[in-house]
């Protein structure tokens, strides 16, 4: 059975999820070809265990994201079962390649076994489903749900020149780069809700986040009412995240918020209401006001 991984990158480095995609495939006893759009990260990819070969697809179309152009260029070198990260771009490219090849696409897979059998959450995490796939397909894997492949390889790299016409153009960039980590990429997220009292109090969360190397997230209430950026919103109409640790501060735990974060590996909740629903999903809970809890939490973390 053949596998093709499509690599995403962060600047010139492979996105950390690429290690997870290759790790997931190795786990079911297979090797994979890795496609690096515009060659980015190709030498790094060749060093990952479980990689059979690396194909760098070079073309002008890769200087801005146009799912249609990217999937056309990439599709030309794909084979077998195609595996991508369930990031927004990954989902789009995956859906387009599946449509081109007229093969099924299964998005946001959280477990995979030989056969191929996959499991994925549905209804925003209120249920899961397990599917058996017969033949080739496109599978996108949820970030942070799989273990990393290790380094220690020297796979051959080949270069293919393949571009495609861009159908869009960027006419304006809005907003400046945020120095803060994106919630979908972070290992640890600390999110605040209406219980923070005001937008200014988010500075306490930011300083905690800096101590932990964490991203800052938010509930919809504070995004809507205090104008926090929507990219910070976690939940049904925000981002779906699965970090190793999710810290919810002053968030009640409405079903729509849980939809975005309940698959986090560990959840720590701080809320002054012992009956807040967030405690039903929390692994660890502190029933206290954040004003009392955060300073102590921070000083304990500093001691580590």
């Amino acid at each position: 059975m053949k596998f093709t991984v499509i690599a995403e990158t962060n600047e010139d480095l492979l996105h950390p999820t690429v290690y997870q995609l290759i790790g997931a495939i190795s786990k079911i006893g297979a090797e994979t070809t890795v496609i690096c759009p515009n060659g980015k990260g190709s030498s790094e990819a060749s060093k990952i265990k479980g990689v059979e070969k690396v194909i760098s697809v070079n073309g002008d179309c890769f200087h801005l994201f146009d799912g249609s152009a990217w999937s056309t260029a990439i599709n030309s070198v794909c084979e077998g079962t195609i595996v991508i990260s369930a990031s927004p771009n990954g989902r789009e490219i995956g859906a387009m390649i599946a449509a081109k090849r007229d093969i099924p696409i299964i998005q946001d897979v959280t477990a995979i076994s030989a056969g191929i059998e996959v499991t994925r959450p549905i209804y925003s995490g209120k249920a899961t489903e397990t599917l058996l796939i017969n033949g080739d397909s496109v599978i996108t894997l949820r970030p942070n749900a799989f273990e990393n492949a290790e380094l220690g390889n020297e796979a051959p790299i080949s270069i293919v020149d393949q571009t495609s016409d861009l159908k869009i153009s960027i006419i304006e960039a809005i907003g400046k780069a945020s120095e803060r980590l994106d919630v979908t990429e972070a290992e640890i997220i600390i999110s605040g809700g209406r219980g923070m009292g005001s937008i200014d109090n988010f500075s306490h969360l930011e300083s905690m986040a800096d101590t932990l190397g964490a991203a800052v997230g938010a509930s919809r209430a504070v995004v809507d009412e205090w104008g926090m950026p929507h990219r910070m919103q976690v939940g049904q109409t925000g981002k779906t995240v699965s970090p190793s640790l999710y810290i919810a501060v002053g968030i009640s735990g409405a079903i729509q918020h849980l939809a975005g974060m309940r698959s986090s590996k560990y959840i720590l909740a701080i809320n002054k209401d012992p009956d807040a629903p967030i405690f039903t999903v929390a692994d660890y809970g502190i029933v206290a006001s954040w004003e009392d809890a955060l300073p102590i939490l921070k000083s304990e973390l500093m001691k580590l």
Partner: peptide, 16 residues
């Protein structure tokens, strides 16, 4: 091409 094996409730979490 795809066979549904089963749909399930999310795994129960241990009480926190």
């Amino acid at each position: 091409r795809i066979t549904l094996q089963s749909q399930n409730s999310p795994p129960e979490k241990e009480p926190g």
